[in-house]
């Protein structure tokens, strides 16, 4: 197992890549931060990506 160390200032960790995590990451970058977005699944999107449409406007969820 390899180990990497990184020194980066002004970074924030977001655990979870569902709609909440992705939105938090986006807003944090808007506020001037560098974000590590950690997701345990191979792709982000979480449960929202599984939804067909959203209530009550029936927008596509992707």
């Amino acid at each position: 197992m390899t180990k990497a160390m990184e020194k980066k200032e002004g970074a924030v960790l977001v655990v979870g890549g569902g709609v909440a995590g992705v939105q938090a990451a986006m807003d944090l970058t808007g506020l001037g931060y560098y974000v590590y977005l950690v997701e345990k699944a191979p792709t982000v999107g979480g449960a929202m990506a599984m939804l067909d449409k959203t209530f009550p406007t029936n927008d596509c969820s992707l």
């Binding site: 990184e6 970074a11 924030v12 960790l13 655990v15 995590g21 944090l28 931060y33």
Partner: peptide, 9 residues
């Protein structure tokens, strides 16, 4: 990872 804060989501 060196971070200032953590968001749990």
């Amino acid at each position: 990872l060196h971070v200032g804060a953590v968001v749990m989501a």
